[in-house]
Protein backbone atom coordinates (compact mmCIF):
# COMPACT_ATOMS: atom_id res chain seq x y z
CA UNK A 1 0.00 0.00 0.00
CA UNK A 2 1.53 3.27 -1.04
CA UNK A 3 0.21 6.42 0.45
CA UNK A 4 1.89 8.73 -1.97
CA UNK A 5 1.02 9.57 -5.50
CA UNK A 6 3.69 10.15 -8.13
CA UNK A 7 4.08 13.74 -8.97
CA UNK A 8 4.80 13.70 -12.66
CA UNK A 9 4.07 17.11 -14.10
CA UNK A 10 5.25 20.65 -13.63
CA UNK A 11 2.13 21.60 -11.75
CA UNK A 12 1.60 18.51 -9.66
CA UNK A 13 4.16 19.68 -7.14
CA UNK A 14 2.31 22.96 -6.84
CA UNK A 15 -1.00 21.21 -6.26
CA UNK A 16 0.68 19.08 -3.63
CA UNK A 17 2.02 22.17 -1.96
CA UNK A 18 -1.47 23.66 -1.79
CA UNK A 19 -2.81 20.42 -0.40
CA UNK A 20 -0.04 20.35 2.16
CA UNK A 21 -0.91 23.90 3.14
CA UNK A 22 -4.54 22.97 3.57
CA UNK A 23 -3.55 19.89 5.52
CA UNK A 24 -1.33 21.85 7.90
CA UNK A 25 -4.06 24.42 8.47
CA UNK A 26 -6.54 21.64 9.14
CA UNK A 27 -4.21 19.87 11.53
CA UNK A 28 -3.71 23.09 13.43
CA UNK A 29 -7.45 23.67 13.67
CA UNK A 30 -8.07 20.06 14.62
CA UNK A 31 -5.38 20.19 17.28
CA UNK A 32 -7.10 23.24 18.67
CA UNK A 33 -10.61 21.81 18.54
CA UNK A 34 -9.78 18.33 19.81
CA UNK A 35 -7.29 19.76 22.28
CA UNK A 36 -9.88 22.07 23.79
CA UNK A 37 -12.57 19.39 23.87
CA UNK A 38 -10.15 17.08 25.63
CA UNK A 39 -8.88 19.64 28.12
CA UNK A 40 -12.32 20.94 28.99
CA UNK A 41 -13.72 17.45 29.25
CA UNK A 42 -11.16 16.67 31.90
CA UNK A 43 -10.93 19.98 33.70
CA UNK A 44 -14.59 20.83 33.71
CA UNK A 45 -16.12 17.38 34.14
CA UNK A 46 -19.05 17.60 36.49
CA UNK A 47 -17.34 15.72 39.29
CA UNK A 48 -14.31 17.96 39.32
CA UNK A 49 -14.53 20.54 42.04
CA UNK A 50 -11.96 22.81 40.52
CA UNK A 51 -12.92 26.40 41.06
CA UNK A 52 -14.36 27.76 37.83
CA UNK A 53 -14.03 31.30 39.02
CA UNK A 54 -16.36 33.80 37.52
CA UNK A 55 -17.32 33.49 33.90
CA UNK A 56 -15.81 36.48 32.25
CA UNK A 57 -18.29 38.84 30.73
CA UNK A 58 -18.92 37.54 27.25
CA UNK A 59 -16.86 39.73 25.11
CA UNK A 60 -17.42 40.90 21.58
CA UNK A 61 -13.70 41.04 21.23
CA UNK A 62 -13.39 37.29 21.39
CA UNK A 63 -16.07 36.82 18.77
CA UNK A 64 -14.59 39.39 16.47
CA UNK A 65 -11.12 38.01 17.07
CA UNK A 66 -11.83 34.52 15.91
CA UNK A 67 -14.04 35.63 13.09
CA UNK A 68 -11.37 37.86 11.69
CA UNK A 69 -8.68 35.20 12.16
CA UNK A 70 -10.86 32.74 10.23
CA UNK A 71 -11.53 35.27 7.48
CA UNK A 72 -7.84 35.98 7.05
CA UNK A 73 -6.90 32.32 6.80
CA UNK A 74 -9.78 31.63 4.44
CA UNK A 75 -8.91 34.50 2.20
CA UNK A 76 -5.29 33.42 1.95
CA UNK A 77 -6.34 29.90 1.01
CA UNK A 78 -8.78 31.24 -1.53
CA UNK A 79 -6.16 33.35 -3.25
CA UNK A 80 -3.67 30.51 -3.27
CA UNK A 81 -6.17 28.10 -4.78
CA UNK A 82 -7.52 30.55 -7.34
CA UNK A 83 -4.10 31.59 -8.55
CA UNK A 84 -3.06 27.99 -9.07
CA UNK A 85 -6.33 27.20 -10.83
CA UNK A 86 -5.88 29.97 -13.33
CA UNK A 87 -2.43 28.70 -14.18
CA UNK A 88 -3.65 25.11 -14.33
CA UNK A 89 -6.04 26.04 -17.08
CA UNK A 90 -4.14 28.65 -19.07
CA UNK A 91 -2.32 26.77 -21.80
CA UNK A 92 0.78 28.37 -23.29
CA UNK A 93 0.49 29.22 -26.95
CA UNK A 94 3.16 26.86 -28.17
CA UNK A 95 1.59 23.70 -26.76
CA UNK A 96 1.49 20.50 -28.75
CA UNK A 97 -2.15 19.88 -29.62
CA UNK A 98 -3.71 16.48 -29.27
CA UNK A 99 -7.36 15.72 -29.90
CA UNK A 100 -9.44 13.56 -27.59
CA UNK A 101 -12.90 12.18 -28.14
CA UNK A 102 -14.77 10.49 -25.31
CA UNK A 103 -17.58 8.10 -25.93
CA UNK A 104 -19.33 5.45 -23.89
CA UNK A 105 -16.96 3.88 -22.77
CA UNK A 106 -13.60 4.62 -24.34
CA UNK A 107 -11.18 7.39 -25.11
CA UNK A 108 -10.11 7.99 -28.67
CA UNK A 109 -7.00 10.04 -29.21
CA UNK A 110 -5.73 11.58 -32.41
CA UNK A 111 -2.38 13.24 -32.87
CA UNK A 112 -1.71 16.00 -35.37
CA UNK A 113 0.23 13.57 -37.51
CA UNK A 114 -2.79 11.32 -37.77
CA UNK A 115 -1.61 8.74 -35.20
CA UNK A 116 -4.58 7.27 -33.38
CA UNK A 117 -4.82 5.42 -30.12
CA UNK A 118 -7.57 4.13 -27.90
CA UNK A 119 -7.56 4.35 -24.11
CA UNK A 120 -3.98 5.46 -24.23
CA UNK A 121 -2.20 8.74 -24.65
CA UNK A 122 1.46 9.07 -25.53
CA UNK A 123 3.06 12.41 -24.75
CA UNK A 124 6.55 13.81 -24.65
CA UNK A 125 8.01 15.08 -21.39
CA UNK A 126 9.21 18.62 -20.95
CA UNK A 127 6.84 20.07 -23.47
CA UNK A 128 3.44 21.59 -22.87
CA UNK A 129 0.67 19.44 -24.29
CA UNK A 130 -2.78 20.76 -24.89
CA UNK A 131 -5.72 18.41 -25.20
CA UNK A 132 -8.74 19.48 -27.18
CA UNK A 133 -11.56 17.31 -26.02
CA UNK A 134 -15.10 16.57 -26.96
CA UNK A 135 -17.63 13.84 -26.41
CA UNK A 136 -19.85 11.89 -28.74
CA UNK A 137 -22.57 11.25 -26.21
CA UNK A 138 -22.73 12.09 -22.52
CA UNK A 139 -20.43 14.09 -20.27
CA UNK A 140 -17.14 12.38 -19.43
CA UNK A 141 -14.14 13.67 -17.58
CA UNK A 142 -10.52 13.28 -18.55
CA UNK A 143 -8.43 12.83 -15.44
CA UNK A 144 -4.77 12.09 -14.90
CA UNK A 145 -4.12 11.91 -11.14
CA UNK A 146 -0.35 11.84 -11.54
CA UNK A 147 -0.57 15.22 -13.25
CA UNK A 148 -3.21 16.47 -10.74
CA UNK A 149 -5.37 17.59 -13.58
CA UNK A 150 -8.82 16.86 -14.90
CA UNK A 151 -11.63 18.45 -16.85
CA UNK A 152 -15.09 17.51 -17.97
CA UNK A 153 -15.53 16.53 -21.60
CA UNK A 154 -18.84 17.72 -22.92
CA UNK A 155 -20.75 16.83 -26.02
CA UNK A 156 -21.09 19.69 -28.46
CA UNK A 157 -18.16 21.62 -27.07
CA UNK A 158 -14.40 21.67 -27.21
CA UNK A 159 -12.96 21.72 -23.72
CA UNK A 160 -9.27 22.13 -23.14
CA UNK A 161 -6.78 20.72 -20.73
CA UNK A 162 -3.06 21.15 -20.67
CA UNK A 163 -0.08 19.84 -18.76
CA UNK A 164 3.65 19.61 -18.97
CA UNK A 165 4.81 16.12 -18.07
CA UNK A 166 8.12 15.84 -16.27
CA UNK A 167 8.80 12.25 -15.34
CA UNK A 168 8.70 9.56 -17.99
CA UNK A 169 6.45 6.71 -17.00
CA UNK A 170 3.04 5.26 -17.38
CA UNK A 171 0.14 6.71 -15.42
CA UNK A 172 -3.54 6.12 -14.88
CA UNK A 173 -6.07 7.80 -17.04
CA UNK A 174 -9.58 7.81 -15.57
CA UNK A 175 -12.98 8.95 -16.66
CA UNK A 176 -14.20 10.70 -13.55
CA UNK A 177 -17.62 11.91 -14.58
CA UNK A 178 -20.25 9.25 -14.19
CA UNK A 179 -21.21 8.28 -17.73
CA UNK A 180 -23.27 5.11 -17.53
CA UNK A 181 -22.82 1.39 -17.13
CA UNK A 182 -19.11 0.97 -17.83
CA UNK A 183 -17.94 4.26 -16.39
CA UNK A 184 -15.49 2.31 -14.24
CA UNK A 185 -14.02 0.66 -17.31
CA UNK A 186 -13.38 3.91 -19.15
CA UNK A 187 -9.79 3.93 -18.06
CA UNK A 188 -6.49 3.86 -19.82
CA UNK A 189 -2.91 4.89 -19.49
CA UNK A 190 -0.92 7.95 -20.18
CA UNK A 191 2.62 7.26 -21.29
CA UNK A 192 5.04 10.10 -20.87
CA UNK A 193 8.22 9.56 -22.91
CA UNK A 194 11.48 11.33 -23.55
CA UNK A 195 11.11 13.58 -26.54
CA UNK A 196 13.29 11.37 -28.70
CA UNK A 197 11.28 8.29 -27.75
CA UNK A 198 8.13 10.17 -28.49
CA UNK A 199 9.35 11.15 -31.92
CA UNK A 200 10.22 7.52 -32.57
CA UNK A 201 6.81 6.43 -31.32
CA UNK A 202 5.17 8.87 -33.68
CA UNK A 203 6.97 7.56 -36.70
CA UNK A 204 6.43 3.94 -35.76
CA UNK A 205 2.74 4.53 -35.38
CA UNK A 206 2.68 6.92 -38.27
CA UNK A 207 -0.86 7.43 -39.33
CA UNK A 208 -1.56 7.04 -43.00
CA UNK A 209 -2.32 10.74 -43.15
CA UNK A 210 -1.92 13.79 -41.04
CA UNK A 211 -5.11 15.25 -39.60
CA UNK A 212 -4.99 18.08 -42.08
CA UNK A 213 -4.54 15.76 -45.03
CA UNK A 214 -7.31 13.50 -43.83
CA UNK A 215 -9.48 16.57 -43.38
CA UNK A 216 -8.78 17.66 -46.93
CA UNK A 217 -9.98 14.28 -48.18
CA UNK A 218 -13.11 14.47 -46.11
CA UNK A 219 -13.75 17.97 -47.36
CA UNK A 220 -14.13 16.54 -50.82
CA UNK A 221 -15.83 13.35 -49.72
CA UNK A 222 -18.62 15.13 -47.82
CA UNK A 223 -19.12 17.46 -50.72
CA UNK A 224 -18.05 20.63 -48.93
CA UNK A 225 -15.78 21.50 -51.82
CA UNK A 226 -18.83 21.61 -54.03
CA UNK A 227 -19.74 24.92 -52.49
CA UNK A 228 -16.79 26.28 -50.57
CA UNK A 229 -13.50 27.51 -51.72
CA UNK A 230 -10.75 26.08 -49.58
CA UNK A 231 -7.13 26.47 -50.49
CA UNK A 232 -5.76 28.16 -53.55
CA UNK A 233 -7.72 26.11 -56.00
CA UNK A 234 -11.30 26.98 -55.64
CA UNK A 235 -14.29 24.85 -55.10
CA UNK A 236 -17.32 26.86 -55.76
CA UNK A 237 -20.09 25.43 -57.84
CA UNK A 238 -23.34 27.09 -58.58
CA UNK A 239 -24.00 27.93 -54.96
CA UNK A 240 -22.60 31.08 -53.48
CA UNK A 241 -20.86 30.09 -50.27
CA UNK A 242 -18.19 31.87 -48.24
CA UNK A 243 -14.60 30.95 -48.87
CA UNK A 244 -13.03 29.22 -45.92
CA UNK A 245 -9.55 30.60 -46.53
CA UNK A 246 -8.36 32.67 -43.62
CA UNK A 247 -11.58 32.03 -41.77
CA UNK A 248 -10.17 30.52 -38.58
CA UNK A 249 -9.44 33.07 -35.94
CA UNK A 250 -11.10 35.95 -37.72
CA UNK A 251 -14.32 37.76 -36.89
CA UNK A 252 -17.39 36.80 -38.91
CA UNK A 253 -20.30 39.20 -39.38
CA UNK A 254 -23.60 37.37 -39.09
CA UNK A 255 -26.91 37.99 -40.75
CA UNK A 256 -28.53 39.04 -37.47
CA UNK A 257 -26.07 41.87 -37.15
CA UNK A 258 -23.81 40.32 -34.52
CA UNK A 259 -20.25 39.29 -35.03
CA UNK A 260 -18.69 36.06 -33.83
CA UNK A 261 -15.15 34.93 -33.59
CA UNK A 262 -14.40 31.86 -35.71
CA UNK A 263 -13.05 29.31 -33.25
CA UNK A 264 -13.33 25.52 -33.14
CA UNK A 265 -16.78 25.65 -31.69
CA UNK A 266 -18.02 28.10 -34.30
CA UNK A 267 -16.78 25.95 -37.14
CA UNK A 268 -18.24 22.88 -35.56
CA UNK A 269 -21.61 24.59 -35.17
CA UNK A 270 -21.45 25.87 -38.73
CA UNK A 271 -21.17 22.31 -39.93
CA UNK A 272 -23.71 20.71 -37.62
CA UNK A 273 -26.21 23.50 -37.09
CA UNK A 274 -25.58 25.82 -40.05
CA UNK A 275 -28.96 27.46 -39.65
CA UNK A 276 -28.18 28.84 -36.22
CA UNK A 277 -25.60 31.34 -37.36
CA UNK A 278 -25.92 32.58 -40.91
CA UNK A 279 -23.03 34.52 -42.36
CA UNK A 280 -24.10 37.96 -43.43
CA UNK A 281 -25.13 38.27 -47.07
CA UNK A 282 -25.32 34.53 -47.69
CA UNK A 283 -28.41 32.44 -48.15
CA UNK A 284 -29.07 29.74 -45.53
CA UNK A 285 -28.69 26.92 -48.00
CA UNK A 286 -25.98 24.87 -46.35
CA UNK A 287 -27.44 21.50 -45.29
CA UNK A 288 -26.94 20.32 -41.72
CA UNK A 289 -24.41 17.54 -41.39
CA UNK A 290 -25.56 16.69 -37.89
CA UNK A 291 -25.74 12.92 -37.45
CA UNK A 292 -23.66 12.32 -40.57
CA UNK A 293 -20.23 13.37 -39.50
CA UNK A 294 -18.76 11.72 -36.38
CA UNK A 295 -16.64 13.57 -33.86
CA UNK A 296 -13.40 12.08 -35.27
CA UNK A 297 -14.14 13.34 -38.74
CA UNK A 298 -15.18 16.70 -37.38
CA UNK A 299 -11.82 17.02 -35.73
CA UNK A 300 -10.12 16.36 -39.04
CA UNK A 301 -12.33 18.78 -40.94
CA UNK A 302 -11.71 21.44 -38.37
CA UNK A 303 -7.99 20.77 -38.43
CA UNK A 304 -8.09 21.22 -42.16
CA UNK A 305 -10.09 24.44 -42.01
CA UNK A 306 -7.72 25.71 -39.35
CA UNK A 307 -4.81 24.99 -41.61
CA UNK A 308 -6.35 27.38 -44.09
CA UNK A 309 -5.97 30.24 -41.67
CA UNK A 310 -2.61 30.96 -43.19
CA UNK A 311 -4.01 31.19 -46.71
CA UNK A 312 -5.29 34.65 -46.09
CA UNK A 313 -8.78 35.65 -47.03
CA UNK A 314 -9.51 35.57 -50.68
Amino acid sequence: MTLTLTSASVHSAEVDALLAGLLLMSLAVLALVFGLIWTYAIRYRAGNTEDRGAIGQKSWRIEIGWTVATLVVFFALFVWGADLYVRLYTAPGNALKIYVVGKQWMWKVEHEGGQREINALHVPVGRPVQLIMTSEDVIHDFSIPAFRIKHDVLPGRYEQLWFNAQTPGSYHLFCTQFCGTDHAAMIGEVVAMQQADYARWLTQNGGSDTLVAAGRDLFTRYGCSGCHQAGPTGGGGTVRAPSLNGLYGSPVPLADGTTVFADDKYIRDSILLPADQIVASYAPVMPSFSGQIGEDDLIKLIAFIKSLAAEGPS
Binding site: E14, L30, Y85, L88, R148, T176
Partner: peptide
Protein backbone atom coordinates in the same frame (compact mmCIF):
# COMPACT_ATOMS: atom_id res chain seq x y z
CA UNK B 1 -15.03 19.91 11.89
CA UNK B 2 -13.10 17.36 9.86
CA UNK B 3 -15.83 17.28 7.23
CA UNK B 4 -15.99 21.06 7.12
CA UNK B 5 -12.24 21.50 6.87
CA UNK B 6 -12.08 19.06 3.99
CA UNK B 7 -14.87 21.11 2.44
CA UNK B 8 -12.28 23.89 2.35
CA UNK B 9 -9.93 21.59 0.42
CA UNK B 10 -12.49 21.23 -2.33
CA UNK B 11 -13.48 24.88 -2.15
CA UNK B 12 -9.86 25.86 -2.88
CA UNK B 13 -9.81 25.82 -6.67
CA UNK B 14 -6.40 24.41 -7.43
CA UNK B 15 -6.93 21.58 -4.95
CA UNK B 16 -10.41 20.75 -6.16
CA UNK B 17 -9.13 20.09 -9.66
CA UNK B 18 -7.28 17.11 -8.27
CA UNK B 19 -9.79 16.05 -5.65
CA UNK B 20 -13.11 16.50 -7.37
CA UNK B 21 -14.99 13.38 -8.42
CA UNK B 22 -12.75 11.24 -6.26
Amino acid sequence: TIGGLTGLFVAALGADVHLTQT
